[in-house]
Design a binder for these strands. Structure first.
Length: 591
RNA sequence: GGAGCUGUAGCUCAGUUUGGUUAGAGCGUCUGCCUGUCACGCAGAAGGCCGCGAGUUCGAGUCUCGUCAGCUCCGCCA
């Protein structure tokens, strides 16, 4: 007999089960040996159940139980009975299982860290032993949420007549956008597949094929640097619909979020979700994904400072830049050192400096007060609605830079003031709409598609395409929750002529277009329906649902910041013979 | 590509400012005792390439340079 199979799990026994004969399988979470009595907490995915070995009842068994150590895999047969000292902390705390027989199915080495919630072990150790980290209830809870999300997403789109279709993982490398992961072809030496950054083109082609409503929960790959909310492979809920406009995508997507929040968190989210133009988001929050859980909006000051004597402001006004500020309520108590730190923080975003005004006990103190007239100072204070005890932080720069700096400062100040901690159970959704079609890259000296090159311009801005491409707005939209971009999409170009014009604006040559996207252009000529869609960042949604700020917590086997998988040791070198088969020759970097 | 923080016992960390006997603590582990624990308790013990490599010095955990790794951020991420 290798082991007796369980007929009950470690989380389900209650006082109503008293005197049942049961068999448990699981891991020994903790062992408390009192000399005679031995208590073993058995753990599985469902919970923890206390098992007791009594020498009075079964001396040989109790003797054998002394061998049990942490994380041994056990089967235990016994009878359920009420505890004389109940434990109110766990759901099974009213009962215990009196062992009548048991076996060690497998021994375990001493784990490098305790398998329990709230541990402070370093990331490196935890990732190396990911299988042990994943044994912790805290982490399992997140994957249970993730699984619920999969089920709701599939059910929801199925109920709404969407078809799930799988798209290739080996596809053609395309320019624009993120760096591709490349896969060499053995059969076609010197040629490469790319892993999809998203199934964008395939889902559009599925629309041309008449699939009408497509969805897929799909892995995407981008060879870019990692962040706490970015992994090189991640999961999207990919959606595309035909014969629709922007509001159709928005309402279908909102329906999903309403259902998800209701079924997973038991919360009713406000629908319709608020909408804000990209222009307003940037102007008031300095971000295209504003966190609306708190205020601290950006106040624009240029208009009242046109005639300033202050050289720094003068130059900005003359260069058509922007002077703007945020108010830090009760910020006057912040020390010079803290303000210096905030200045350093602002410099990461390209700020040259940071001006500030403190109002404290009726006194105004500011390094720039000597450059401002009383009226100007009054104007700044009034514009910020600042009261005694407040601090005003002022940025003056090129318009977009000044806004970005203040947007970043707004979040940093909120973090330092403990505002995020206060609002951590709030959920503020937002649609950001009317994105620019293009953004200009100074370095490359040309326009790039802000969303992607298949995004449709708004009809009313068509006339600007040739004269002022930077002003053209796109039929693109992002969905934001608590300052995180959790999805984005657009209405696509279904007209081949406009698509050609778009490529033309992006500075792609005829031959380049033909080589990279020829198949899409061709497909668009065969009767493309109007279509559009959205891609939702599933990992980020799970992050928000499970209350974590790190994407590693919601991906079973994540990579480190430098893209390594510490458990399996990838990426790794390969055999020379493998490279030879692929026709690949490596060269070493020489200095 | 760049910046910051971190690396000392299985784990979490002190010690580095000002170089100097045998590198400490808590938790965990092991051994013994212990019949109602659930952070069990009590007594004892074991456990260290101070990330790695150079250098300075009579002497380096401590200073210098390099390097590797983890985390966070900027760039990057249509």
């Amino acid at each position: 007999m290798s082991f007796l199979k369980r007929n009950i799990n470690c989380g389900e026994l209650r006082d109503t089960d008293v005197s049942r004969k049961v068999v448990l399988n699981g891991w020994a979470a903790t062992v408390r040996n009192l000399g005679g009595l031995i208590f073993v907490d058995m753990r599985d995915r469902y919970g923890i159940t206390q098992v007791i070995f009594e020498p009075e009842f079964n001396p040989e068994l109790a003797e054998k139980a002394k061998e049990i150590r942490s994380e041994f895999v056990l089967w235990v047969e016994g009878e359920v009975r009420l505890r004389s000292n109940p434990n109110q902390v766990i759901p099974t705390g009213l009962i215990e299982v009196v062992a009548s027989n048991f076996g060690i199915i497998n021994k375990a080495e001493l784990p490098p860290f305790p398998i329990e919630d709230g541990i402070e072990t370093g990331e490196e150790t935890k990732l190396k032993y990911r299988y042990l980290d994943l044994r912790r209830p805290e982490l399992q809870r997140k994957f249970i949420i993730r699984n619920k999300l999969y089920q709701i997403v599939h059910q929801y789109y199925h109920d709404n007549n969407f078809l799930e279709v799988e798209t290739p993982v080996l596809m053609k490398s395309t320019p624009e956008g993120a760096r591709d992961f490349l896969v060499p072809s053995r059969i076609n030496k010197g040629k490469f597949y790319a892993l999809p950054q998203s199934p964008q083109i395939f889902k559009q082609i599925l629309m041309i094929s008449g699939f009408d409503r497509y969805m897929q929960i799909v892995k995407c790959f981008r060879d870019e640097d990692l962040r706490s909310d970015r992994q090189p492979e991640f999961t999207q809920v990919d959606v595309e619909m035909s014969f629709i406009d922007r509001d159709d995508i928005i309402s279908v997507t909102e329906g999903l979020f309403v259902k998800v929040w209701k079924e997973i968190l038991g919360l009713d989210i406000q629908s319709p979700i608020r909408r804000m133009s990209y222009a307003e988001a940037m102007s008031s929050y300095g971000s295209d994904k504003p966190d609306l859980r708190f205020g601290m909006e950006i106040n624009h000051l240029s208009s009242g400072l046109m005639s300033t004597e202050f050289k720094v402001f003068q130059d900005i006004v003359a260069a058509n830049g922007l002077i703007a500020s945020i108010k830090v309520t009760n910020g006057a108590s912040l020390s010079r050192k803290i303000i210096d730190e905030l200045t350093e923080f602002a410099k990461k975003y390209g700020a040259k400096g940071l001006a500030w005004i403190k109002i404290s006990n009726g006194e105004i103190s500011s390094p720039i007060s000597k450059f401002l007239t009383e009226e100007q100072m009054e104007f700044i204070i009034r514009s910020n609605d600042a009261k005694d005890g407040d601090l005003i932080l002022i940025s003056s720069d090129k318009r977009n830079r000044a806004l970005t700096i203040l947007g970043a400062l707004r979040l940093e100040v909120a973090r330092r003031q403990g505002i995020f901690e206060k609002v951590k159970n709030n959920f503020e959704f937002l649609w950001v709409v009317d994105f620019p079609l293009f953004e200009y890259d100074e370095e490359a000296g040309r326009y790039f598609a802000m969303h992607h090159p298949f995004t449709s311009p708004m009809e009313e801005d068509f006339h600007l395409l040739d004269t002022n491409p930077g002003e053209v707005r796109a039929k693109a939209y992002d969905i934001v929750c608590n300052g995180a971009e959790i999805g984005g999409g657009s209405i696509r170009i279904h007209d081949n002529v406009i698509q050609q014009k778009m490529f033309d604006k992006l500075g792609l040559s005829e031959s380049e277009i033909d080589e990279k996207f020829g198949f899409l252009i061709k497909a668009l000529k065969y009767g493309a329906p109007p279509h559009g869609g959205i891609a939702l960042g599933l990992d980020r949604i799970v992050m928000i649902l499970s209350g974590t700020d790190n994407i590693r917590d919601v991906i079973a086997f994540p990579k480190t910041t430098s893209g390594l998988s510490l458990m399996d040791g990838s990426p790794s070198e390969v055999e020379l013979s493998q490279l030879n088969e692929l026709g690949i020759d490596l060269f070493r970097k020489t200095e």
